[in-house]
């Protein structure tokens, strides 16, 4: 069975079958096969031979997915199908937009109010994370439909702070 997994912005297809020899696995990733032989695995530490090359991988789980460490490289692997199911239906693209922080942050200022007309690129909310201030800007011109946050609120990526309806004709 093939699975869809996401690392950052990239989607990957992976399937696993048993390989030749005891404990050997054949892992297909994006159309390329790897022979994986597990030497020891447990407690988040995995010692494996990948195409005959020894590698030690560390893994740990978080609410966002599984983190994997290999020789200084860390990657967060997320189950793409599960994410798609969770996200649910989206409003039609292009007619509305919401701004959301890129990292967990604290809201320091809200620059607009409900009903305001905003231009593309206009700052809607200022957030701060670890003392760095970031301006969240309107992705499209339109009218502010809703403000879902307050100054001082702790906010997370995915949380829609301001919702905007597209409207090209800005009334005077």
């Amino acid at each position: 069975m093939s699975e869809r997994l996401r690392i950052g912005e990239r989607m990957h297809e992976r399937s696993v079958s048993s390989g030749s020899g005891e404990g050997a696995l054949r892992v297909d990733i994006d159309g390329r096969s790897y022979d994986v032989e597990v030497c020891s695995s447990g407690g988040g530490r995995h010692c494996v031979l990948i195409d005959g090359k020894l590698a030690t991988l560390f893994t740990a789980r978080s609410p966002e997915g599984t983190w994997v460490w290999w020789k200084g490289h860390s990657r967060l692997v997320a189950d793409a199908e599960r994410e798609a199911r969770r996200a649910g239906p989206r409003s039609a693209a292009g007619t509305s937009a919401g701004v959301s922080p890129a990292t967990p942050a604290v809201v320091t200022a809200i620059m607009v109010k409900t009903g305001d007309n905003v231009a593309e690129g206009q700052t809607l909310v200022v957030v701060t994370a670890m003392k760095m201030e970031t301006c969240l800007v309107a992705q499209l011109a339109g009218r502010v439909r809703a403000i879902n946050t307050v100054v001082g609120a702790k906010v997370r990526p995915g949380e829609i702070l301001v919702e905007i309806d597209r409207c090209d004709i800005v009334p005077s």
Binding site: L5, I7, R10, H12, R14, V16, L25, V27, I29, R32, Y34, V36, V38, S41, G44, H46, V48, I50, A55, L57, F58, T59, R61, T66, V68, W69, W70, H73, R75, V77
Partner: peptide, 11 residues
């Protein structure tokens, strides 16, 4: 990334 996908499977 490929190592990470293998690590994810082992986990």
């Amino acid at each position: 990334e490929r190592f990470a996908l293998i690590g994810h499977m082992l986990d």
